[in-house]
């Protein structure tokens, strides 16, 4: 009896790893941000963010290259990378954390969840949590989130020489479609 159990587990460890090791991956997630003042509206958008979720641990990582943000005014894009984000020193902005609510990714439905972890922007890592709306349908997960960040928290300095055309808070919108993906990582 015991031997049979060992044998079963031993077989399982070889036959089911592929089923056990699937992740949810989003290759073309979008991130946009908006800063509005009386002087000027600043809007940037990237369509090449990437994100992954481990359905088992509900760990989530969301990462975007700062230079991938596109602006309506090219000069703004230059200033964004050169003066504010310092993209050559800090090429990425990243969230890594965990979905705190219990969730079955095999069950279709609409979910309102809380995500907790750390947000890294401009080389500064801070604890972060926000609400995420998720729609699960046939294993495909669509996630959306809107939140505000205070740019001062991430040591992005606006020099006094620049007139008041950059808002203190920036509204960030994320959206991603995750496809179930098998992985070879052991």
């Amino acid at each position: 009896m015991k031997k049979a159990l060992y044998l079963l587990l031993f077989i399982c460890s070889f036959t089911f790893p592929s089923r056990a090791q699937y992740i949810l991956s989003s290759k073309n997630a979008t991130v946009s941000f908006f800063s509005g003042t009386v002087m000027e509206d600043i809007e940037g958008k990237s369509n090449t963010a990437s994100s992954v979720i481990d359905p088992k641990t509900r760990n989530i990582i969301f990462k975007v290259s700062n230079t991938s943000f596109q602006f309506q005014k090219k000069l703004m894009q230059e200033h964004f990378n050169e003066d504010y984000m310092e993209s050559d020193r800090y090429p990425f902005s990243k969230f890594s954390g965990r979905i705190t609510d219990e969730l079955d990714f095999n069950k279709d439905g609409n979910y309102n969840l809380t995500v907790e972890g750390t947000l890294q922007i401009h080389g500064v890592t801070k604890p972060w949590s926000c609400r995420v709306a998720m729609i699960i349908s046939n294993g495909v997960v669509t996630a959306k989130s809107v939140f505000k960040i205070k740019i001062e928290d991430y040591q992005i300095k606006i020099p006094s020489l620049v007139f008041k055309n950059i808002a203190e808070y920036v509204e960030v919108r994320l959206s991603a479609v995750y496809q179930p993906t098998k992985t070879i990582t052991k």
Binding site: L9, K27, D54, T57, N59, S65, T181, T185
Partner: peptide, 18 residues
């Protein structure tokens, strides 16, 4: 071994490189 899951670092390797 049947219940393999990802640590944060391992998970990051799975990110698409865009």
């Amino acid at each position: 071994s049947t219940l393999h899951s990802f640590g944060q670092e391992e998970l990051e390797k799975e990110l698409a490189d865009n």
